[in-house]
Design a binder for these strands. Structure first.
Lengths: 334, 334
DNA sequence: TTGAAAGCGCTAACAC
DNA sequence: GTGTTAGCGCTTTCAA
């Protein structure tokens, strides 16, 4: 490709490569380089289609214009959407994104973080999959980290998340207000904060309504939710409503209800979390909470850029965003 | 973070950094380094938690273990899924992925490619958005490129795609065989091969059945498809069936049909391309073709690794994968 | 206002 | 078997 280096440009321009470097880094003013020199250098650089190699700079200054993004999997719409926004924001800000997936696998997570660090990333955005608070705090001293969607309890690392406790409580209350008493919650993996917070909200709302929480399930997977819901609907408890904590689960619930001939919402009410363009088309349309994904990505990036631009601003911040209810036809008032 | 370098390790081990480098690159055997030395070096390296800096190596050998992945947007499920697979494959193969989005914007595409190249990527996987065949051929001489999902007509660059011509023809025939005569096709952006090939298949099937093709629309956007379908259904032509080339469009079509009180499939049959976990839940379930995304990603990566492993194997190859029909309830036989 | 020279961490010729 | 040395392309003192 472009074989031009500072040296070749310098030779053509009849100046030293130092000067070329300064001009091309917009430091001409700072070093009081003559307008004439600056002009020639820029002209030659353009003429020869000079393209600096960031790696060479990286090795020197030990920092790159790369941001590491660590998510469970972008096959999940929520993370795909967030990641898409982040990648775009980064690009607009002059950063390239290294996106890695860790499949909620702690070993993989550790490995990928080390990989990213060895590649001199300037900053990191992570939806943590495991309890690596201390490790992250250690890294955060040198490489700014922002947690997104989830946070590690007790870790002093900035985060931008939904107000998941509110989500759980709000949806539960929504069902309670409509007369439901036997409200089950199909929980996801309970170690991640987004889930545990929602569960906490659910339990709290149930307690406040003098109802007994009923938690079951352990994954976000559709298939598992399907089987678990089958069990649940056949059980003695037989809820009149189910609170699903993610869309994958909701699909499993719907499938199970259909299979057993339970009509939604007549025989079973369902509410869930997260939205996407398909949700309006499944019938009945499921009442759901939608998280402000675009805003979440935006705030997260801004928070990161702030620390990147001013390495002194080490104050960690926690941001909890409010979500929006989208009412469908999946809840019956009884 | 880890401040260790080859030098520090060498000092601790009492050998030269060359030796350390050789050992840590698994070339001990090649240089007939004594087992004793090798053992000590490895021990010290581990002890000091040594982490090599790929950038330093990159600048020396002018190649990194980074693969650039260029897609329109991962907010689109198809690309999210493919990208997810590719990222995972790459990670398993020791490569980190730089994922960039170009939003089907030619200027952005050019800029991002240059960016990736300046970062010394080892290889590139791209779903091209514009007609940059010559440019890619030029790059391909030094950096292996594989096109995925789409290919640039006339460019001598490897590709792994669906057999999109077959998809278009097959779905059209499916409708023809069920007695439909007025079959409209809501096309996407016609400059990308995946779309144009599907259109070609549609037109061919129509011609063979002595029917007049009726193409309309120009984007994959739900909202646009919605309005265009409204127009179409109100028009004189009034198709009995619509071939949608992507899921976003299909949603727009369904919405338009609902709005005008057209029952699917009684008043309007619909078929579309691509599947995802929500498609089974929208009602009626839309008959659709599903592309072998996992396999597509796999073959694409393997093809790339082959060239990466053996720089001489410069033979470009075109792979066209077959897709699978998923029958729903969206087509009426008339 | 500009340049020379050193050095970032690593690899690879070449030597012994 | 192992080490010396040069150099990848860039930035950054330090000097002029």
């Amino acid at each position: 490709m472009k074989k031009e280096t500072l040296d070749t440009i310098a030779a053509k321009a009849g100046v030293s490569k130092t000067t070329v470097s300064r001009v091309l880094n917009d430091s001409a003013r700072k070093y009081r380089i003559s307008e004439q020199t600056e002009k020639t250098v820029r002209k030659i650089a353009k003429e020869f289609n000079y393209n600096p190699r960031p790696v060479a700079k990286n090795i020197r200054v030990n920092k790159s214009k790369i941001i590491g993004l660590i998510v469970p999997s972008i096959a999940e719409y929520f993370f795909a959407s967030i990641s898409s926004q982040i990648i775009r924001n980064n690009a607009n800000h002059g950063y390239t994104t290294m996106l890695v997936e860790v499949q909620d696998n702690p070993a993989r997570e550790k490995k990928e973080i080390e990989n990213l660090i060895s590649r001199n990333i300037a900053g990191m955005i992570i939806a943590p999959s495991s309890n690596i608070g201390q490790y992250l705090e250690f890294i955060d001293k040198e490489i700014p980290i922002i947690q997104i969607d989830r946070y590690i309890d007790g870790a002093d690392i900035s985060c931008v998340c939904s107000n998941n406790h509110h989500i759980g409580k709000f949806l539960t209350n929504y069902l309670v207000e409509r007369g439901h008493r036997r409200i089950a919650c199909i929980q996801g993996p309970t170690k991640i904060s987004s889930t545990s917070e929602r569960i906490r909200g659910y339990v709290e709302a149930m307690k406040e309504a003098d109802l007994e929480p009923y938690l079951y399930g352990e994954s976000f997977d559709s298939q598992e939710s399907f089987f678990q819901t089958l069990d649940l609907l056949r059980s003695e408890y037989r809820p009149s409503a189910i609170l699903s904590l993610a869309n994958g689960q909701a699909l499993g619930i719907i499938k199970a209800a259909n299979k057993l001939g339970f009509n939604i919402p007549d025989d079973l009410s369902v509410v869930t979390v997260d939205d996407n363009k398909y949700m309006n088309f499944i019938s009945p349309s499921i009442t759901r909470i939608t998280q402000p994904m675009e805003n979440m990505a935006k705030l997260c990036c801004e928070s990161l850029y702030r620390r990147l631009d001013d390495p002194n601003s080490k104050n960690t911040s926690s941001v909890f965003l409010m979500s929006t209810l989208i009412e469908g036809d999946s809840v019956k008032a009884i």
